[in-house]
Design a protein around this nucleic acid. Structure first.
Length: 432
RNA sequence: UGGGGUGUAGCUCAAUUGGCAGAGCGCCCGGCUGUUAACCGGGAAGUUGGAGGUUCGAGUCCUCCCGCCCCAGCCA
């Protein structure tokens, strides 16, 4: 009885007889010799069948192979320069496990609308497998980075009663007899509470925005990691960010080179991602943009075009800090050196990928926070627990949120965030 | 919510600007002993997104509706 092995193990099994279970990608035949390219999730394998060397049933089975037929192939592992990957399987038997009739995604070109309608099948493609592996590496790097630095993971609620940020639309649902519940658009307020208990914390999970955004950078459901650190000021917050992003990129370069090659990603720009990152104040950024021909004015938030133009001036991610108070959220700490601004920052990824991080030092003064809540017309009683954090031993603290899909898109060099998650949720896409 | 596109075979796209709906891939049949998205020969495949209108004649022009894509705002 031959062993069943994974394709990835085959280079170490040259000479032995093995059985592989996998899916059919393409077939080629020359009458008496036949080739089938297989994939099993661990790698890609070419199996070779010679008509004279296999049972008639196996030869007939080859003739019935169609794209994505699942099969069991037994044979001898052989090194051969003509085989993709350098190793192939000289088959002695082939059995069909599951036929596949009229697989909709052919090896030729398709439009994005068609592919996303078949997302559950499209995931099997080499490109989508590579993206999934990079995403997995990013997620694991995130967890390892914080674990190594003694952060505690705090899982924050997805169903919430209060509202996170001032603007933005939220998904709402009826919550028993307690009225409306909202799907969380941030875990930040909760990790602030946890930071007062545990010091260094982070949350990592899905987040929901009911905004009718239709751009390559937006999803209605996306994953965000949000660290929050007691006694960090804005400067320490930015140092943590550049260390964090550099760590994630380095891990992908170190462990996912084959996937980045599959994606035809030029890794040179990624290799430059090392601390320190350039920093520029919002005010200086406005001046710089003006000198570059932009009609940007002080007081306006940076738009997509401005972000791209600004990021193009640097060879690695750039930290833009101290934005005008009126364009930023109520919880950001007022800048003592310039009360028109707050102690926040965004991180703009290079190559046009835009904002991957938004962060700030939090307002730790009870009265100032309360007046901001009132000024923005937020429901004061809903924020009672949040204000308590300033009432009982207030503390300097700061944190940020990193968007996983935007980060994965940037590292992979893909044009749209919806490819960076297995089943994207957008304005028009709730299935599959 | 604005602005710009697009919809023709299973898929990706043509169709002389109003005059016989076509190609490549995929699929089916046949051929080939080292193929790499194999190649060669043959075949099947269409309510041109939907409804209405103009016209001798509409894939093409007009009106409305529907789906999708891109850009902007919002943000990660």
């Amino acid at each position: 009885m031959p062993e069943t092995v994974r394709v990835a193990e085959l280079p170490g099994r040259v000479g032995s007889t093995v059985t592989v279970r996998a899916w059919t990608m393409t077939t080629r035949s020359s009458g008496k010799i036949a080739f089938v390219t297989l994939r099993d999730g661990t790698g890609y394998l070419q199996a070779v069948l010679s008509k004279k060397d296999v049972p008639d049933a196996a030869w007939d089975a080859f003739g019935r192979l169609t794209q994505e037929t699942s099969v069991e192939v037994t044979g001898v592992v052989r090194a051969d320069a003509r085989a993709p990957g350098g190793v192939e399987l000289q088959a002695s038997d082939l059995k069909i496990l599951g036929p596949s009739v009229d697989f909709p995604i052919t090896p030729k070109e398709h439009g994005t609308a068609f592919l996303f309608e078949h997302r559950h099948l499209w995931l099997r493609s080499r490109r989508q497998v590579a993206i999934a592996r990079v995403r997995h590496e990013v997620s694991q790097a995130i967890r390892d980075f914080f674990y190594e630095r003694d952060f505690t993971l705090v899982d924050t609620p997805i169903l919430t009663g209060s509202i996170g940020e001032a603007a933005g639309h939220l998904f709402a649902t009826q919550y028993f007899d307690l009225g409306t519940a909202y799907l969380a658009q941030t875990g930040q307020l909760y990790v602030e509470a946890a930071a007062a208990a545990l010091g260094k914390v982070y949350c990592f999970g899905p987040t929901f925005r009911a905004e009718k955004s239709k751009t390559r950078r937006h999803l209605t459901e996306f994953w965000m990691v949000e660290p929050e650190v007691a006694w960090n000021d804005s400067d320490a917050n930015m140092r943590l960010q550049e260390e964090f992003v550099s760590y994630i990129v380095a891990r992908c370069l170190q462990r996912r080179k084959p996937e980045l090659v599959e994606l035809e990603r030029d890794t040179k720009p990624l290799e430059r991602v090392q601390p320190p990152f350039p920093r520029i104040s919002y005010s200086a950024a406005v001046e710089k943009l003006k000198s570059l021909g932009s009609d940007m004015e002080w007081g306006r938030d940076l738009g997509g075009d401005e972000e791209t133009l600004l990021a193009q001036q640097f060879d690695r991610p750039v930290l833009v800090h101290d934005y005008p108070k009126q364009v930023k959220a109520f919880y950001m700490k007022e800048n003592p050196a310039d009360p028109r601004t707050v102690l926040n920052n965004d991180m703009l990824a290079p190559e046009g990928y835009g904002e991957i991080i938004g962060g700030s030092q939090r307002e730790d003064d009870y009265d100032k926070l309360l007046s901001r809540i009132r000024a923005e017309g937020l429901p004061e009683d809903a924020y009672g627990w949040y204000l308590d954090l300033r009432k009982y031993g207030t503390f300097v603290h700061a944190g940020f949120g990193l968007g996983v899909e935007r980060t994965v898109s940037w590292i992979c060099g893909i044009p749209h965030v919806r490819e960076a998650i297995a089943f994207p949720r957008t304005l028009y896409k709730l299935w599959p």
